[in-house]
Simulated scan of single mutants.
Amino acid sequence: MMFNDSSILNIVEKKAIENKARVAIGINFLSTEILDSLKKAQDRGYANIVIVGCKKDIENLDSESNIEIVDTDNPEKSICELLASNDVDAAVRGNIKASKVLDYLKTLMDAEKLYRIALLQTNMGRPFFFAPVGIDEGNDLASKIEHVKKSIEHIRRFDIDPEVGILSGGRSGDIGRNNKVDRTLADAEFITRYLLGNGINATNHNILIENAVKESDFVYAPDGITGNLIFRTLVYLCGGEGIGAPVLTDEYVFVDTSRARKDFTKAIMIASALTSIKTK
């Protein structure tokens, strides 16, 4: 069933406060806005925060903040080492380099590919899960199916049985106009039928993202490039919010974020909340 506009965030917040996990965040540059968000997350009881970064590059950290710092010249590597050693319960990317930290995560997890799912919110306050968000994700049918399955599994861990909306590059009547669009139409229809055949509520919305967001809890884009553009348009042009994109793994909790972000309060909240469902 679909969650209402606030329930998923309430669920996440409640779990975060219950866990109050030790959460590391990668920081290359600490602005006043970022520091305020870290203090807010800690003051609200979401987590005990550990900044991972080079001390000489981190300014404005006053002694009253009670935020620990792990001093390092390689925060991307160090934050993964903290996860591997269980020195922290979870990690948030913060504003360190995405490609570098994700490569270290792949090594840590002995994985060739990582899947992520983003929790987004429209400017009207409508939250929904969304994937793929990485430009290297969702590029073939097999990986799309695997991604959707892993995403649904993680959403269900919040006691939500999602309505899934599948997107393509056109309407069903557009078949034959463009080979690339035809491929997305065929993939979307196959994935929708696959999910329905496995007892999952799913709808093929074609290119009608406006309907998908209204009617679905989890929306899946045609590929990672399209998904990344949708994410950036929603968040940077249309007043929406990207709360965070957890990596879909049972072993570690890592929440990806945009380097352009200045408020990591909710990303820390979701990282702390997820620590209660990891299996390692």
Rank of each mutant, 00 (worst) to 15 (best):
L35W: 02
L35I: 09
L35A: 01
D36Q: 11
D36G: 07
S37V: 04
S37E: 09
K39Q: 06
K39N: 13
K39G: 10
K40Q: 13
A41M: 10
Q42S: 10
D43L: 06
D43H: 03
R44M: 15
R44Y: 11
G45V: 13
G45L: 07
G45W: 04
G45I: 08
G45T: 07
G45C: 02
Y46F: 10
N48F: 03
N48D: 12
N48H: 09
I49G: 07
I49Y: 09
I49A: 01
V50R: 03
V50P: 04
V50Y: 05
I51L: 14
G53E: 08
G53Y: 01
G53P: 07
C54E: 09
K55I: 01
K55D: 00
K56L: 02
K56C: 04
I58T: 00
E59L: 02
N60L: 07
N60W: 10
N60V: 08
L61C: 01
D62F: 06
D62S: 09
S63D: 04
E64S: 14
E64W: 07
E64K: 05
E64M: 05
N66W: 00
N66P: 00
I67K: 11
I67L: 13
E68H: 06
E68N: 10
I69Q: 03
V70P: 03
V70E: 04
D71Q: 00
D71M: 00
D71G: 03
T72W: 10
D73L: 10
D73Q: 15
P75S: 01
E76Y: 01
E76K: 00
K77H: 14
S78C: 01
C80R: 13
E81W: 10
E81I: 10
E81A: 12
E81G: 14
E81M: 11
L82G: 01
S85P: 11
S85Y: 09
N86Y: 08
N86H: 09
D87T: 14
V88W: 13
V88E: 11
D89Q: 03
A90R: 15
A90T: 11
A90W: 14
A90G: 15
A91F: 14
A91W: 08
A91Y: 08
A91R: 15
V92C: 10
R93K: 15
R93D: 02
R93N: 05
G94T: 12
N95P: 14
N95A: 07
K97V: 09
K97N: 15
K97Y: 14
A98C: 08
A98T: 15
S99K: 15
S99Y: 09
S99E: 13
K100L: 07
V101C: 03
D103H: 06
D103E: 13
Y104L: 14
Y104M: 10
K106I: 09
K106A: 01
T107C: 09
T107P: 02
T107K: 06
